[in-house]
Structures are given as structure tokens and as C-alpha cells.
């Protein structure tokens, strides 16, 4: 079968120690058997490593921050579209998703297809909404509550045993062992990600994650479970292994079926020593370890592009168990002119 030529915009090029999923998503698309891809990298900062990975990106453009609003984003995307004629755009940051979801129809008018969760799906799985989410969809979730002030930390702390988690609404999570630590983390997290901050019961056990893709009709197109084997001080996986765990897959399948999840997702779970499974987070996008799933036999970014374009997608039924990824750091050397060009012109 002839491959289809596609131009695909991808964000999340920050392949740092807290990596975005952009680079592994591009890597997956480059290995597609269905598409010949021209990749348009979309960056927010001029030192995102993916900008300078010329074997992965064909062209890169700077985007305005999500806080600048939808009009600023649309204006910029419109300019990029006039040059590149993107067929599909894959946003990879939690923090930008809301803006992209709000502009989905306008993007479509420009000829740009996306495949993102609906606003309801995105909103109701917020960490702060997790207890209600668990109740609605019949999942075991940790107790959690929103914090808006230091007084909240003190008051709500009385109902939680130490240690508990202090989490940012998009990213970051810290284990607070006492009230002073909790207050300190509240400041740290709120300064970075805004309010509310989330206080969450600490569940002891093994963290396991599942990458999955839902077709928006209740069907799970693919899913691969992974256990982190090496964790950075930011709690990110620096190494991980695919698991043979039907319970994790079934839990994920039920979430997708009940919510009719549309798009990529990562379900973060904790398995306690008593073998109870808690869903601790649902991330509304493909995770940064996506390439492990590709290597294990499920090219979920490629499947997501097919869904975005309305092409038929056959659900994956298999993947390799015991497949391991190990991240590494590599000093990418770039010419000052490349950096200067991107910094001043916002494209390169």
C-alpha cells in the first residue's frame, strides 16, 4: 500500500529531564508504515532540544504561551498554516490542551485535524476532581481535596494522615511528611502552576502506568502497561518495562469505555501490597514514554493520526512484554546562528 504524504504539527519538543512527549511522538510518526511525514515542530521556548534535532523535525515554529489566549494562538497557527499546510496537529502538553480544544473547530476550518479529548473529558479528570470521577465511573481513587490558600493547607491537613501528596494542577507532586513541608510545597507548586493545588492521600505501593488510545466511541484502540524501573528526582521514568498485566488493561479499557475517551491518555495507578489498584491520575495526552509502546508493537501516535483523519483503525491486541526503555542524555551541539535565527525570527 502506498504511503500517504502528511504534514503533521507536533508540540512538546522539550526533551529534558522532565520530557515532553513531542520527540518520541515524532520518532513514532517517522516509523509509520502508513504515512510519509513532514514534521512541523511547535515550540514555546528557544532551548527546547527538539527544535535542533534536524533529523526529526523539518521545520520549527515558536508558539505563543497558552496564557496569551486562543486568539494569539490562532493567529500564529494561521500564519504557520499558510506556509506549511498542516494536515494534523498533535498537542502534547496538559497546559496547552485547553486552548487547543477551544480552537478545535477553527483549526478544522483551516484544514488542521486533531484528535483530542472533549472539554468534558478533559475537565472531569482533573486531579482536583478525582474523587467525583472515581465515584462516577466506579474506580478506586485516593482521597483528595483542592487547596486555595495556606489556611486551607492547615485546615484540610487535619483530615489527612501524614505523609500526603501535594500536587500541581498540571504537573509536579511532592510527598509532605509534616505541615511545614506541606506549606512549603504549596508555595512551590502554586507559584509554578497556579491554583488550586491538590492535597492527596498517599497510597503506598508500586506505581504502574498505562498508555492508551480511545476512539471517542468507547473503544480502546491500544494500550500498553509499564512500570517505572528508574525514577528521576522529578518522579519521571528514566527507565521502564512493559508488563503483562490484564487487570491494568481491563481497568484502562473500562475507563475508555465509560468515558468514551477520545485521544491519547496515560492512566497512572498504584498497586498496593494488598493488590488493590488505585487510579491516581489520568493524563489527557500521550505520555513521554510513548516510544516504548511503539517498540513493543503499538504505534499509538500513528493510530491517533489515522483517527484524526477519519481513517479506519484496527485495534491493537498484542504487544511485547518485558520490553525496556532507558533514557540517556546526549549533548546536542548547535551553531549559534541556528539558535539566534530561531530566537529572533521564531522559526527555523
Amino acid at each position: 500500500m502506498d504511503k500517504i504524504n502528511l504534514t503533521i504539527g507536533v508540540t512538546g519538543l522539550n526533551n529534558t529531564d522532565n520530557p515532553g512527549p513531542g520527540v518520541p511522538v515524532i520518532r513514532a510518526l517517522r516509523e509509520s508504515h502508513a504515512f510519509n511525514t513532514r514534521i512541523i515542530g511547535l515550540a514555546y521556548e528557544n532551548l527546547e532540544p527538539g527544535i535542533y534535532m534536524k533529523d526529526l523535525v523539518d521545520k520549527v515554529y515558536m508558539l505563543p504561551y497558552p496564557t496569551d489566549g486562543t486568539e494569539a494562538l490562532l493567529q500564529r497557527i494561521s500564519y504557520i498554516q499558510s506556509k506549511e499546510s498542516m494536515d494534523v496537529l498533535i498537542p502534547n502538553f496538559d497546559a496547552e490542551l485547553f486552548t487547543f480544544m477551544k480552537t478545535e473547530a477553527r483549526l478544522k476550518e483551516m484544514g488542521i485535524h486533531t484528535f483530542m479529548p472533549t472539554l468534558l473529558q478533559y475537565e472531569e479528570r482533573h486531579k482536583s476532581q478525582l474523587p467525583a470521577y472515581g465515584k462516577k465511573y466506579g474506580m478506586r481513587v485516593p482521597k483528595s481535596v483542592e487547596l486555595f490558600s495556606l489556611e486551607d493547607v492547615s485546615q484540610k491537613s487535619e483530615k489527612y494522615d501524614f505523609p500526603y501528596m501535594i500536587k500541581g494542577k498540571f504537573y509536579d507532586a511532592y510527598i509532605a511528611g509534616n505541615i511545614d513541608q506541606a506549606k512549603s510545597y504549596f508555595h512551590k507548586v502554586s507559584a509554578k502552576w497556579g491554583l488550586p493545588v491538590i492535597m492527596q492521600e498517599y497510597i503506598t505501593g508500586t506505581e504502574v502506568n498505562v498508555i492508551a488510545l480511545g476512539d471517542g466511541k468507547g473503544n480502546m484502540i491500544g494500550a500498553v502497561p509499564m512500570k517505572k524501573q528508574y525514577i528521576t528526582d522529578k518522579g519521571k521514568a528514566w527507565g521502564g518495562i512493559t508488563l503483562d498485566d490484564p487487570v491494568l488493561l481491563e481497568t484502562t479499557r473500562q475507563i475508555i469505555e465509560k468515558t468514551k475517551w477520545r485521544g491519547g491518555m496515560e492512566v497512572e495507578m498504584i498497586r498496593t501490597d494488598d493488590n488493590e489498584l488505585y487510579v491516581i491520575e489520568i493524563n489527557p495526552r500521550i505520555p513521554a514514554w510513548a516510544y516504548l509502546a511503539v517498540a513493543a508493537g503499538q504505534n499509538l501516535p500513528e493510530a491517533l493520526v489515522k483517527l484524526a483523519l477519519g481513517l479506519p483503525v484496527k485495534p491493537f491486541t498484542e504487544y511485547s512484554k518485558g520490553k525496556i526503555f532507558i533514557r540517556y542524555s546526549w549533548d546536542l551541539i548547535i551553531d549559534f546562528n541556528d539558535f539566534q535565527k530561531f530566537s529572533t525570527l521564531g522559526e527555523s
Partner: peptide
């Protein structure tokens, strides 16, 4: 049943990844 072991003495549990 799903525990894998090699002649070299390496045992792998694919359910837990251990």
C-alpha cells in the same frame, strides 16, 4: 505460568516487571 527464566539464572516476572 508466565514467569520467564533463562539458563543463566535470570528470572523475570512480566506481571510486575521485577
Amino acid at each position: 505460568a508466565n514467569i520467564a527464566n533463562s539458563q543463566d539464572g535470570f528470572v523475570f516476572d512480566p506481571t510486575t516487571g521485577d
